[in-house]
């Protein structure tokens, strides 16, 4: 069962289109998996659209602009391209012979993601380039897999796509939306027999806090960023 959701403020801002692109991506993917939040967002969109029920007036100058705008818009024929049937994009990703269905928002990354690479401790990751917003990762923790204990210099958003994992603070299930920042130190690991697949975005390199993983700190931007 999904226990961790975006905040009401995040859902409202997402509906209004004012949330940052990275947060929007995570909230959107969460809504694909969570009907509760999906419904709330739909309600918020309807509420926001009520603004259009208010009367609006326009000046003479604006009317002139509208006239030429109307003329130029209606000169263009209907968009024929939209009649084409959508190109079938892969909706799942594969790792080690296993297939994982992706939520709609993340499907486009199924074809643009980088290769899987093995990290320590039954941990696999594949990067997704988000341009200047940073790099997101699909991270797969096999049974007993773990990420070394770390804290965050920036924010970390994680969405559980399949299976479950715990991090010493909580246990997270498929669909859970997890937000971590500098106040949180955690060491995710999965005991799920099926392993656990998550999608994660970090806006600053992680800071590893224990053991040999500390060696990673000068280079952590190469790993999780």
């Amino acid at each position: 069962m999904i226990k961790f959701h975006p905040s009401p403020e995040q859902l409202t801002a997402f509906a209004e289109g004012t949330l940052s692109p990275v947060e929007s991506l995570m909230v959107s993917a969460h809504c694909d998996m969570c009907s509760r939040c999906e419904t709330r967002v739909a309600d918020e969109v309807e509420r926001a659209a009520l603004e259009f029920d208010e009367p609006a007036t326009s000046s003479h100058t604006e009317d002139q602009i509208y006239k030429s705008m109307f003329a130029s818009i209606t000169q263009v024929p209907a968009d024929e391209a939209t009649y084409l049937s959508p190109k079938a994009a892969p909706s799942a990703i594969e790792l080690d012979g296993r297939k994982f269905e992706l939520p709609r928002t993340l499907r486009r990354y199924a074809s643009s993601m980088g290769n899987w690479s093995g990290l320590v401790g039954r941990l696999w990751q594949a990067p997704v380039d988000l341009g200047e917003a940073g790099v997101a990762h699909f991270i797969y923790m096999g049974r007993g897999g773990s990420v070394p204990e770390h804290t965050h210099r920036g924010c970390e958003y994680t969405l559980v796509l399949s299976g479950e994992f715990c991090d010493g603070l909580n246990t997270y299930d498929s669909g859970d939306f997890i937000y971590m920042n500098g106040e949180h130190t955690h060491a995710p690991h999965s005991d799920d027999t099926e392993g656990c697949l998550v999608f994660s975005i970090v806006d600053q390199p992680l800071h590893f806090t224990s053991g040999i993983a500390r060696l990673l700190n000068p280079f952590s931007h190469l790993f999780f960023r």
């Binding site: 997402f14 289109g17 692109p21 990275v22 929007s24 991506l25 959107s28 391209a81 939209t82 084409l84 049937s85 959508p86 190109k87 994009a89 709609r104 928002t105 486009r108 074809s111 643009s112 993601m113 980088g114 290769n115 990067p127 380039d129 988000l130 341009g131 200047e132 917003a133 790099v135």
Partner: peptide, 25 residues
């Protein structure tokens, strides 16, 4: 130049999918 555009989040007007460009990191 983020790779997050409105069509991904709210596909109300899109029926086209982005080209599969092999990004190798």
């Amino acid at each position: 130049k983020e790779d997050v555009c409105s069509d991904d989040l709210w596909p109300i007007l899109c029926e086209q999918t982005a080209d599969a460009n092999e990004a190798s990191l």
